[in-house]
Every structure is written in C-alpha cells, then in structure tokens.
Design a protein around this nucleic acid. Structure first.
Lengths: 228, 228
DNA sequence: GCTCCAAATTGACTTAAGTCAATGACTTTT
DNA sequence: AAAAGTCATTGACTTAAGTCAATTTGGAGC
C-alpha cells in the first residue's frame, strides 16, 4: 500500500472525488485495486459480466464496439484522470463496450457492489456521476447524428478538426494511422486514404506519410457540416 | 390547482419520485407547470436553450434528430410516465434532441434551475436519475452499434421484432407507416418498402397494406444479427 | 357506387462507400 | 545493406442504399 499517497492524488483529480477529505480518499482507495495493462491488451469486453467501475490513472484507453467480422468502431478515446464503465457499475449489467489499452495503462477498479457501497457512504460521488453521464449522453447523441446524416467525408473532416482542436494544426500520422482514424469515423482505411487525397487535391490539407497539416480550417468546417 | 391529486398520482409513477411522501410530491408539483401539446406539435427543438425537465403524463412523444435536408431520425419513442430532457436539465446546456408530440400530449415541466433546487431538497431524485441515465446510455450505445454494423435490412428486422415484442406478432401499419419506420431505422420509406417485400417473398412476414404479421421469428432474429 | 387522396409500391438510375488485390513507401530487424 | 514487415496508396470492381418519378392500392368521404 505504498501507493496510497500517489493514488490519492490521482483519485482526487477525478471530479467525483474532489470534495472528499484525505481520509475518505484512503477509504475509497482501499475498496478497489490497481490494475495494469499492456498496450493493445483488453481491459474488458462488451457483453461480458460487469467488470466494475474503473478510473484511468495513466495511459490511454479506447472504448469501442466490435462488429461480427472483426470491424472496430471507436466510441471514445480516454485520457487520465477519468472514470469509465460507470454505466455497467451503476446497473450491474454487462459491459456495454469493449475497452482496450492503447498504451501501457494503469487503472484503479472497484467491483460494482463495492462501488454502490461507496456511493451510499459518499453521496457526492453519485451526484457528480450525473454530470459525467450527461456528458456521455451528449457524446453518444452526437455519434447518432453523425452516423445518421454525415458522409464519411464529413465525419472525417469533423474528426480532423477535433484532433487539431487539442493543439496545433498538425496531426501526427504515426499516432493516428488510417486504421485508427477509420475506426473512429466508422469506415475503412481505404476510404480514409481516398478522402485525405481529395482534401489534399482541394488544398484543404497538406499530407505526407508522416503528418497531416490543416491548411484551410474554414472549408474543413463547411465539409464537416458544422455551422457556427 | 385542482389537478394536484391527479398529477401527484402520475408523478408518483415516475421512478424518481416513488419514495416521496404526498406532501413532498405536492411541493414538487408546485415547482413546475402542466403543458399540453397537440399531435405533431414540437415540444422543444434540438440546439435551442434548455427547455427544462419534462415528465410525460399522457400521450406519446418522439425524441429525434433532424438532418440538414429535413430528414428525421428517431432516437426513442416514449410512453407515460417517464422523464425526458433530463440531460439538458442536468447540465443546463441546449436541448440535445428535438421532441415532437406524436399524439395529444400532457406534460409536466420544471425549469432546470428549479429542478436543481428540487434535487438538493430531495436527493432521492438525483439517485434515481442515475438509473435513467444509465439506461439511456445503453440505448444510445445500441444505436451506435446498429448504425455501425447493421444493414438497413438487419435494422428493420430488429425493429419489427421490437414492435412485436410489446404485444402480438401483428403490427398495425396505420400506426407505424413506412415513413415512421424509416425514421426509426434511419433510412428512407422506399427502402422500408423494398425490405418488407423481400421479407414477404421469403415468407418471413405476411404483409398487407393494413398490417404486418411476423411468420418466422427465428429467421427474423437471424437477419437482425441477434444471437441468443 | 364513384372520386379523391395519401401512402405504398415499383422501376430505373445514381452514388457513396465497401472489397479485394497490387504496388509503393518507409521502418525495423538482422 | 538487404530483407521483412507494416502501412498507405491506388485501381478496378461490387454492392447497398439513396433519388426521382411513375403507378398502384386501399381507404375516407360524398
């Protein structure tokens, strides 16, 4: 338990836990375990019995759905510090999605019964969970909208905007290979390649094997069908 | 306020309120208003400022997203007694979806600030909201899965199963015209028509202009890619 | 009965996007 | 440096599903 100081610091960053005293945090930490995963390892899989409530401490994880022929659609990419699988932990049902470690990953986990005990003991956890769930809901509704009304081109344009939102206009293709973008946009790597080529020809992006640079944000927004 | 006894009975059926005393329910009712809507009237629209938290008392409402060319994708059809627009009420953001009255409708509504006051006063509301949100989340994840991996044929097969789940093997086409099924399955009325014809030729359903009868549940499940 | 109407059906066509296979470019290993 | 491996790119083809425009159907009302 030499990890408790370190962990408590991390758990404290989880919005649900931010109003709690140090002693309470220690209590909470003791209710769960630290689990580590290697890159590309499955943390849990959809339809399996509830794996519990996780907090991502280090690394990056992907929440995804997999199709009958091994296709993969990514719902969300998570960075620390954040909760996940809270839906299954709440209702005790099967994991709704598959969760893969996209890097070396450190998590903290509580079984869902214990999680319920904690919520009883610290009602604050439950209340802040409401915000998380509301946010997740909005994200999922946005996905529904995208898949209902946007073409692959529009979805990819939107995704490029999102990727560049978090920093510069440059996207490192070794971090985001076509296969990964395809999974996020719900299409194939070939379609990504062709769409990127189109954007390149139109001088909306510059693209080498190593990186994509956004040249014309305005037109990308138009293609993404985003009206401001 | 002659409606209070009637309303209190209805609100009591909302899971969030079931543990509350009569006096508390009266307090809650007074915090909101009863609103009525005609068939096909908009109760609120997506992207507009938070319309508040609603409870459906009577009638049926559709939660939907609308596309740039007037297309419509239905996320959910609600029957009493149930809450809706809780996401916007929680975070105070814009309504995430459009809500249409599918029949004459009676609702009860609280503005989101008052809703927050109520949650403070009656924490039970917040806790049971967690369950609702978890359920909504699972529904949305299922939609994501459907749109990612299932063809129109598979989605329609699934929808027919869902419709017949709630009763017999017979579906009244005057209640569920092609346009409506298309909106639920995220496709066009023509595609619904063609798919129904295919199912008819394959003797999986019988279909007249008035009603659809499911003949072969097993094969419908297979087409819907549902494995039990 | 007949008329009118909205919805369903059907045909013909277009199109976005998936599939499969070949090639090319860069990286890592040995 | 050669070999192997991975990923991107491109071409050729297929296919599911959307579009548009008749045409048909089965009421609802007269």
């Amino acid at each position: 338990m030499e990890m408790i100081p370190h962990l408590s610091e991390n758990l404290h960053k989880v919005k649900q836990f931010e109003d709690l005293a140090y002693d309470d945090i220690v209590t909470i930490i003791k209710a769960g375990d630290v689990l580590r995963f290697h890159k590309d390892e499955a943390i849990f899989r959809e339809d399996e019995p509830c794996a519990g409530m996780f907090v991502l401490i280090q690394g990056e994880v992907h929440l995804l759905k997999s199709g009958p022929e091994g296709q993969v659609s990514i719902l969300n990419a998570l960075s620390p510090v954040i909760m996940f699988n809270e839906v299954a932990a709440l209702d005790g049902g099967a994991n709704p999605v598959t969760c893969l470690a996209n890097t070396e990953v450190t998590t903290w986990r509580v079984h869902h019964q214990k999680f319920h005990d904690l919520m009883k003991q610290f009602p604050q956890i439950g209340f802040s969970l409401l915000n998380i769930l509301a946010r997740r809901n909005r994200l999922l509704i946005a996905h529904f909208d995208d898949l209902s009304f946007r073409s692959v081109q529009a979805r990819l344009a939107k995704h490029l905007i999102e990727l560049s939102d978090q920093g510069t206009r440059v996207i490192d293709r070794t971090r985001f290979p076509n296969r990964l973008m395809a999974a996020r946009v719900v299409t194939t790597p070939e379609a990504v390649s062709r769409t990127l080529k189109f954007l390149k020809v139109e001088a909306i992006i510059a693209s080498t094997r190593a990186r994509i640079t956004i040249l014309d944000f305005e037109r990308l927004l138009t293609l993404a069908q985003i009206d401001l």
